[in-house]
Design a protein around this nucleic acid. Structure first.
Lengths: 211, 211, 211, 211
DNA sequence: TATGAATGAGGCTTCATTCAT
DNA sequence: AATGAATGAAGCCTCATTCAT
């Protein structure tokens, strides 16, 4: 129970005043943790990640995490909120503005593959145990939910034919993830966008003529 | 080091009351573990489940687990392989016998969803924190490779139109896994099979007319 | 989550077979923990002691503790039970056999000071923060409860006069503890026994003649 | 490093709404902490209480605690000293003025129990796991030393019989602390005073007739 | 083979304490 | 002085895995 005073001196005498721990402001630290969490969740998946993993991806001390979040889940929530505010409005807008199914789909797949590329292999296989995991990070789950909504909206507007919206969203999601695994550059992203868009576009026609 | 099923019932077949030597038939323990693992993974999700959880769902001792599997991942693999082994041979035959794209696709998706259903939740998402994951075990990877071969074979036979075979296989795989996550009964499996088959069928038409 | 295998090889090649960890049997380990707990509780008091403190006073690994007890409190219970069975029956017998108040009291104080001496300063001041703590270890609490019972029994038998039994037990307890703090040898124990016995004996007379 | 009461109200006397400079009178924070500590110790026991608990029971910031006290123990000491300072001078006077042993003892025990009562549970045992403890802070030790002096003085004056003065002081101390643990109101304090006084009074007669 | 106790790494969280502001 | 975020030691406990029997 007797805590020893933490050793702040360290081994480098240049640490003092100004660029020490006070160089990191409160808001900065929150962002540092969020950034680390995003990366860690992307790399090893939310379920496999531990709070310690997040902390380790940070210059901060273990206890500092708990000044900002009570648990891994709470970080997750914050990430959701953040992404919801930052990434998705644009995609939503494009989808909502889509005048036809092709625009809707190419916006969707194009964004998805672009994001996958940006995340530099975030969705790619891990070496761990030679297994391939695919984790739904916060933004992904939120994105799926939005996709579902947008599909329903598009159907209501006549932009998409009236097919099974839930399955369509699921199908698009699966297509997107699987095709994003092997992306190796913008050219492939474009080709995959084209492929997926046409596949689903054609499929929609077939589904609509029957349903 | 690879887990091998025990071949003999050992020396204490009379240990359990009531059914004599049947109580210790070979590979029984392996099956006990697999059954427990399937249930535990289904109940709490693969990521959240621990080896201990699996053992606890078993009448066996902790050490016994390691006579059969090296890790949780290996059990999972075995669970997957079980499906693959049961499903693949028949699937291959049906695909090779397919006279048109619809038969090819419905055989593929139908088998896949049936297997997913049989495996009662092995693929299904877990509540909240236990997010979705997917593992490509060797057997599964082999299954995907087979799909690719079969697609090429079908194209050569004119059963499928000449599109990008690699992407088509990938697309079908993604569609299959994603749609299999939410299956809740045979009716849904049939509906998903129908949906996926028509989607890809229509898509193939669209892709073919351009490519 | 990936645990590395514990290093059992150590640095001494003579560790193997026979005198390794299997040299400690299950029951022995339970006793080892109990003995360590008794000492730790006596040294620093139950409330201040941690499970880690107990483990550290042991050659066992941290996790082993939890094979035997769920918590500090559970050890405490076990200690109570143990002491109840081992130490106190003799004292009880002597008190119950006491033919007069003097015998009752000298048995009580004599046992107490002997135990204090045996415990080699268990009740003595700690250097910690220059404060003196007096903790009621399990045996102490149980002993106090028994003292109360025995007093009532003795009053019923006419061995003790009918005074306030609760306060008498408390008074004897306080006297015992305080006098035991400065004991430096058997001679002092005897002198303190004599002093306390006569003090209370005389006091009883005075209390009885008024009450 | 010793905690000193702050002497000035500082520069921001107008900081709290409503009562101007009175809001920041000197030593106010020290008293706030002491009051919070008294309550927290009473509620959860000294051992279980943490500095954080005390701070949380306060409107003050964590760091402020350390402007006044170095540790939990120091707060406890201050709490004790408070009593001692309030009680000792009067007690001394009464003891020195005592014309007989009864007056001497009832003054001693009466003051002690009254103080214990005033301190509302500071000495009382906590539920279950938080066991009893007693601390002899410098002030308390000084009080005991004073008792010893007063006893010798009383013996010299013939007010107390010539018995072992050291042991008598110790006995009175132990009696006092132990009986003070269970006090629940003024009536009990009076009863305990009466009980202890008569017990020791009678005991003194017995000890004297032998010694 | 099966058993299950032992192991110790490591996850989670809270704590006492410091220190820039 | 007062603040309160940062720190990291250390408590608690569970886990995967080993190994003597």
């Amino acid at each position: 129970m007797e805590a020893k005073p933490p050793d702040h001196s360290g081994t480098d005498g240049a640490r003092r005043r100004g660029n020490g721990r006070r160089a990191r402001t409160k808001t900065q630290n929150r962002d540092i943790i969020l950034a680390a969490a995003r990366q860690v969740f992307a790399e090893m998946g939310f379920a496999a990640a531990t709070v310690r993993d997040v902390i380790r991806a940070t210059p901060l001390a273990a206890g500092t995490f708990y000044n900002y979040f009570k648990s891994k889940e709470e970080v997750y929530q914050a990430l959701r909120d953040e992404v919801a505010l930052a990434v998705r409005p644009g995609l939503r807008a494009r989808r909502r503005a889509a005048g036809n199914a092709g625009e809707f789909l190419s916006a969707t797949f194009g964004s998805f593959f672009a994001a996958a590329l940006d995340h530099g292999g975030s969705f790619a296989p891990r070496p761990a145990a030679a297994l391939r995991f695919r984790m739904d990070t916060p933004e992904v789950l939120a994105g799926i939910a939005e996709l579902k909504e947008d599909i329903e909206d598009a159907m209501a507007r006549g932009v998409l034919p009236p097919v099974d919206g839930g399955r369509l969203a699921t199908a698009i999601t699966g297509l997107g993830f699987e095709l994003s695994q092997d992306l190796n550059g913008p050219a492939e992203a474009a080709a995959s966008t084209d492929f997926a868009t046409r596949l689903v576009l054609g499929g929609l026609g077939a589904l609509a003529s029957k349903a």
